[in-house]
């Protein structure tokens, strides 16, 4: 988690992601499914942002797997 915080500090445009990290850290001991949901939302948010920057069209109800596939394909 520290590594991710460090990366986000380096690149301020990703700063909104700290909300998810805070939530994951908050829930990881007490409510794992919430921590997991937030981890998924974190990944989704990064993948969405990458697709947006590469002007890749993303369907509204796309699955996380497909979305990540699209984000990786941008590279």
């Amino acid at each position: 988690m520290d590594k991710l915080r460090q990366v986000i500090e380096e690149y301020p445009r990703w700063q909104d992601l700290t909300v998810y990290i805070d939530r994951i850290e908050l829930f990881i001991e007490s409510d794992f499914s919430s921590a997991q949901e937030n981890a998924k939302a974190l990944l989704e948010s990064i993948a969405q942002e990458i697709c947006k920057q590469f002007t890749i069209e993303v369907e509204k109800n796309i699955s996380i797997n497909k979305l990540l596939g699209k984000a990786f394909n941008c590279f």
Partner: peptide
Amino acid sequence: KTEQEFLISSTVTVCVFLIRYHE
């Protein structure tokens, strides 16, 4: 607990990779 930790840490690693690679 170990599996849970693994799940979260691997997710975070992918996040770090995506951001670093993108930047």
